[in-house]
Design a protein around this nucleic acid. Structure first.
Lengths: 250, 250
DNA sequence: TGAATAGTGTCTTTCAGACAGTATTGG
DNA sequence: CCAATACTGTCTGAAAGACACTATTCA
C-alpha cells in the first residue's frame, strides 16, 4: 500500500515518504448539465456544438452544455452549473438537481477527467428565448438523441432520462416544465409526454389536487370548448413526493 | 464572457485568446465513502482518524474514509471507491452506490476541491474483521455522529443517512446489511433499526415474500422458541423497488 | 343541437395497517 | 402446562384503475 493516504479532501499522512505535499497530477474537473424542456409535444434536451480548434476533442460534435470548473469564478459546483445554464439559456432559476458524476482515465482523450452532471427542467416558454448561438434543442427518441454525442455524454443523458422518467412516477417534477399558468389537463399531458404513457384523468386530478402543490387562480383557459381552470405552482417550490407510483409495478 | 468555454470535459474553443490549452488551475479531486453497518442493534458508520503531519488540515479529527484520486492507479471513480473501501474494511463486493459530489473553493483549506461521495452497506459479520488500524465504527445519533468531522463530512454523512432512510422505505436495501443467512424477523428488525420505527409483521412478510428478492434455504434458525425459516438473497443481487412506501406520507 | 373537452361520481382492485388467532419450539 | 416467538388469516381503509356520467363552451 503505497501512495497518498489523506482522507476526505485530505492528502498524505502516514505513508511518510510522500506527505502533505500536493504535487501530484490532478484530474480535469468539469460540470455538465442535462437541460430538459417540452417543445412540440415532445421531451427535448439542449445540446451544444463543440468547437474545432486544434487540440479540441470531438470537433463539431454535439455535447451537453458544460465545461471546466473555473476555480476563480465558481464558488462551488452548483454555482458553476447555474452559470453555465444561464449562459446557454438565459434561465436563472430552474429546477436544478445533481445527477451524479462520471470520472475515468479514458473519458476525455486529454487525460483523467471527472465531470459533475446536473439536470435541469425549464418551461417551454423560457426554452426559446435567449438561447446561445451554438445551442440547439433536440427531441428525445427513447432514452437517447439522434446525433452522436461527445465524450460519455450519451451515457450521462441516458442516466438523466431514466432518472427523470423514474421520478415523474412519484413526484411533481413535471410541474417545473410548465409555464406560470396552466390547466390540469395540460399538466397531465406533460406527465404523459415524459412517461410516454396515458394516465387516468380522475386519479391524476385527485392526486394533484390533494397534494400541496398547485393553487387555482381567478382565471380560465378559453378554447373551442369548455374552459378549464387555470392553476399556478404554490410559493413553496419544493417538489412533492407521492406515496405510490402511478401504475402498479410490473 | 471571458474564460474557458469547452463543453463536457472540453476546454477552450471560440474564445480565441485562450484556447485548447490545459494550463489552468485544477481543483483537487477526491473520493469519500460513507460505510454503514448494523452493530449492537444500531446503525453505525465507519470513520477514520486523520493524521497530524505538517500541512494536514483537521489533524487527528475523525473523517469519512477516502482520499485523493490517484490517476495512475484508479481506472475510474468507482474503482477508486472500491479500492479505498477494501483498504479500510477488507470488504470487496458490498452494496455501493454513488451519493453525490461536493465541491467548493472553501471546503478544503488547501484549495478548491471536489469530492465524489459514495455510500456502501456491508453486513455486520464483515464489519469486524480486517478493519484498518485507524478506522473505527461510530453509532449514529439521529442523522449525525458524536465526534466533530473534518471538512464538510458532517454534511455528506447527513445526506447519506437521509438517502438511506428514504430508500429503505421503498427498496430492499437493508438486505445488504444482512449476513448470508437470515430470518424474516431478523430482516424486519434491520428495517426497523434503520427507520427507527416499528413495522407491521404481516405486511412486511407479504411484501418481502412477494418480491423476487429472497429464497428459503433448507435450514431453520433454532432458539428458545419456535424456529424460524432461514432465507438468503437470490442470486440476482439487484435491489428491489416497491411501488409504495411502508407508511402513508406525512 | 352536436362536437369537444373539463370535470365528477361510482365501482372495483390492490395492498398496507391493525390485530386476532394458530403453530412450534424449550422449559 | 406456559412463555415466547414464528407465522397466518381476516377485516378495514386509502388510493389507484376503469369508466360512465355530467358540465360548459363554441360553432
Amino acid at each position: 500500500m503505497v501512495g497518498r493516504q489523506g482522507q476526505g479532501g485530505g492528502a498524505g499522512n502516514k505513508a511518510g515518504a510522500r506527505r502533505a505535499g500536493l504535487d501530484f497530477p490532478r484530474p480535469l474537473t468539469s460540470v455538465d448539465i442535462v437541460i430538459f424542456t417540452i417543445r412540440l409535444e415532445a421531451l427535448h434536451v439542449l445540446l451544444v456544438r463543440r468547437g474545432h480548434a486544434e487540440g479540441e476533442p470531438f470537433p463539431d460534435a454535439q455535447a451537453l452544455p458544460g465545461g471546466f470548473v473555473d476555480v476563480a469564478r465558481d464558488r462551488d459546483l452548483e454555482a458553476c452549473a447555474r452559470r453555465k445554464l444561464a449562459e446557454k439559456t438565459g434561465v436563472v432559476s430552474p429546477y436544478l438537481e445533481q445527477l451524479g458524476s462520471w470520472g475515468s482515465a479514458t473519458r476525455d482523450p486529454r487525460g483523467w477527467s471527472a465531470t459533475h452532471a446536473y439536470f435541469a427542467l425549464i418551461p417551454a416558454s423560457a426554452a426559446e428565448t435567449a438561447l446561445a448561438a451554438d445551442a440547439q434543442w433536440f427531441p428525445l427518441y427513447g432514452a437517447g438523441v439522434k446525433p452522436r454525442l461527445a465524450f460519455d455524454h450519451q451515457e450521462i443523458l441516458q442516466a438523466a432520462v431514466q432518472r427523470l422518467r423514474n421520478k415523474v412516477e412519484y413526484t411533481s417534477l413535471p410541474a417545473y416544465l410548465m409555464p406560470e399558468e396552466f390547466t390540469l389537463p395540460e399538466l397531465q399531458r406533460t406527465y404523459e409526454i415524459v412517461l410516454d404513457r396515458p394516465l387516468e384523468k380522475s386519479a391524476f386530478r385527485t392526486r394533484m389536487l390533494s397534494a400541496d402543490l398547485i393553487e387555482p387562480i381567478d382565471k380560465m383557459r378559453k378554447g373551442p370548448n369548455r374552459p378549464a381552470q387555470l392553476y399556478r405552482l404554490k410559493a413553496a417550490a419544493a417538489p412533492v413526493y407521492f406515496a405510490r407510483t402511478f401504475n402498479a409495478p410490473e
